[in-house]
Design a protein around this nucleic acid. Structure first.
Length: 370
RNA sequence: GAUACGUUGGUUCUG
């Protein structure tokens, strides 16, 4: 059972959902781990319905099962369902509350996140850190200090959270000050600092941090590659990409995006074809490149071939049509899009940028989640 | 005995 459970997890992680399920079905005496890992395998591969189905079939549920289902809803953009499950749970632990708190904060609902936090019976450092991060998502830098002073203690994650808040605000000077005052830094702190330097045009400082890294993972390579691209050194970026000994799908996507931004569509397409890993972001990048340069025919062609499509895919197409004055196409695409509420903003902008204010108003009034 | 759930850094559209 142990080995089967591990296999389910492994297949789930590499997207082989049918293999995972086969193994799951062959286990005669499934334990809690088997159920949870299968649930996660479904959820992380976008099969929310199957995950839900499984959840209701689990013979003896416990907190881990409930928490895993909440996480499943969250990763599949079903925050409302996550909330109602959370509220209907027989009991909560630190993990349940922190999970939902973070999701609420990420959706921009700081108030609800606070309510969850305040209702917690006990709070550990992770919960505090989650609340700290919640404030950084609402760009409330001043409140950060207030929160951090209430915290019983701060660890490296707390400091990294604060650091990234300042980095995101564009204040590279304060970011630098905090970074140097930190008693302990790790790869996350350094990458945050590196990005902040890069964004403020200090490529030399960025390179210096990069050189001093204890080890380089795919994230640090990606940030450094983008730093050179942002500084206008495409050659350096390409060079670094070829040197990088740790690359993941994000590194590849970032490089594709750099080619696309540089306007070399042919080269982008070749690079795209050579990619060992692809996901929705990969296809969206190429799609946006075509669409933004007015090659809507190419975009359309690609759109119909896409193995992955998400709300961004639809937004790119609709925005592309709108910018090209093809409102009829934009409208009909919107009506067939699956994730309407994510795309509605773009549709609204489409009406507006074509001067169709009355239609925009009518559309706005018809939005259920406005 | 060993495996599962929460907090901080990187990519694609719009803002």
């Amino acid at each position: 059972v142990f080995l089967s459970n591990i296999s389910i997890q492994m297949f789930g992680r590499c997207g082989s959902i049918s293999h995972a399920y086969q193994i799951f079905c062959r286990i005669v005496t499934k334990d809690c781990f088997s159920w949870v890992m299968m649930l996660q395998a479904f959820a992380t591969n976008g099969h929310l319905h199957e995950a839900e189905h499984l959840f209701f079939k689990i013979p003896q549920t416990n907190l881990v099962v409930w928490n895993a289902m909440i996480a499943a809803y969250i990763t599949n953009n079903a925050l409302l369902k996550a909330q109602s499950l959370y509220e209907s749970m027989p009991e909560w632990n630190l993990i349940s509350s922190t999970t939902i708190l973070t999701a609420l904060a990420c959706s921009g609902d700081l108030e609800k996140a606070k309510v969850v936090f305040d209702s917690m019976e006990e709070r550990d450092l992770i919960a505090w850190n989650a609340m700290l991060a919640a404030y950084t998502h609402s760009d409330n830098i001043d409140e950060l200090t207030a929160i951090s002073q209430q915290m019983p203690e701060l660890d490296i994650v707390s400091w990294n959270t604060i650091l990234s808040a300042y980095a995101r605000s564009g204040d590279s000077h304060t970011t630098e000050q905090i970074f140097h005052r930190m008693t302990e830094v790790d790869l996350v702190s350094c990458t945050t600092m590196l990005k902040s330097y890069a964004e403020s045009g200090q490529i030399g400082q960025a390179q210096h941090v990069f050189d001093g890294l204890p080890h380089r993972d795919a994230t640090s390579w990606t940030v450094m590659i983008e730093a050179y691209s942002a500084a206008g050194s495409l050659t350096e970026a390409v060079d670094l990409f070829n040197k990088a000994n740790s690359k993941d799908i994000v590194t590849w996507n970032a490089m594709l995006s750099i080619y696309a931004q540089s306007g070399h569509l042919e080269q982008s397409k070749h690079f795209f074809d050579s990619m060992p890993l692809q996901d929705a972001a990969t296809w969206n990048t190429l799609l946006a490149a075509y669409s933004q340069r007015g090659h809507l025919i190419y975009a359309q062609e690609l759109f119909h071939k896409m193995p992955f499509a998400d709300s961004i895919t639809w937004s790119v197409m609709i925005h592309g049509y709108a910018m090209n004055g093809q409102m009829a196409e934009a409208k009909s695409l919107f009506s067939t899009s699956l994730i309407r509420f994510q795309v509605a903003r773009v549709m609204l902008g489409a009406y507006a940028s074509n001067g169709l204010l009355d239609e925009a108003k009518g559309f706005f009034d018809s939005m259920p989640e406005r």
